[in-house]
């Protein structure tokens, strides 16, 4: 069986959405920061153990400090949102709970996953402690640079989207 699912990457600018996108799609990484204007879209076909062939169409959107500023049309027809924040920049996750509440309110049927990126730059133990203290929820901590947890995360998401 073949399925196609739209997944949108959201979050502040410079948190590593494009790096995660490139790491997952092309298995590539660059230290250079290049701003994303609008949206880049790429597709990756994932063969799941269940026999399902999933086309994950990923929309890598431009970053915004306010989730409300994300262009509404980009979110249309989405199956999942991946909210990415930068583990080294508190300002990228300080309003996370409010942003997630906003997404849930306006897109109640869409799966929401939260990623803390740039794990290579922080101590995992320390940051987990800090996120717990600040009551910041997350599904996965990744490093697009070192490829830590990136493919695992997307594969698990793919499984979930086909359930």
């Amino acid at each position: 069986m073949k399925l196609s699912k739209k997944v949108v990457l959201l979050g502040h600018f410079g948190v590593g959405k494009t790096s995660l996108f490139r790491r997952f799609i092309d298995d590539a990484f660059s230290e250079d920061y290049k701003v994303t204007l609008g949206v880049q879209i790429k597709k990756k076909v994932i063969q799941l153990p269940s026999g399902i062939e999933l086309s994950m169409v990923i929309w890598d959107t431009e970053g915004h400090q306010e989730i409300e500023n994300t262009r509404k049309s980009y979110l249309l027809g989405s199956h999942a949102f991946i909210y990415v924040f930068d583990l080294t920049r508190k300002d990228t996750y300080i309003n996370l709970n409010a942003d997630i509440a906003y997404l849930k309110q306006h897109h109640p049927k869409v799966h929401i996953r939260i990623i803390g990126n740039k794990l290579d730059k922080v101590s995992e133990r320390e940051i987990k402690k800090e996120l717990k203290q600040e009551s910041i929820p997350f599904d996965c901590l990744t490093s697009a640079k070192t490829n830590k947890n990136v493919s695992t995360f997307f594969n698990e998401l793919a499984e979930e989207l086909t359930k």
Binding site: G38, V39, E62, L76
Partner: peptide
Amino acid sequence: AHPFFEIIKGFLENDAITQNEYSFPCIH
């Protein structure tokens, strides 16, 4: 042609169509 256009599939397949004209700015 390009994965962007799969959005149309979505509009036609599910009940997401609430309008008949859609604008998408700044698509690469």
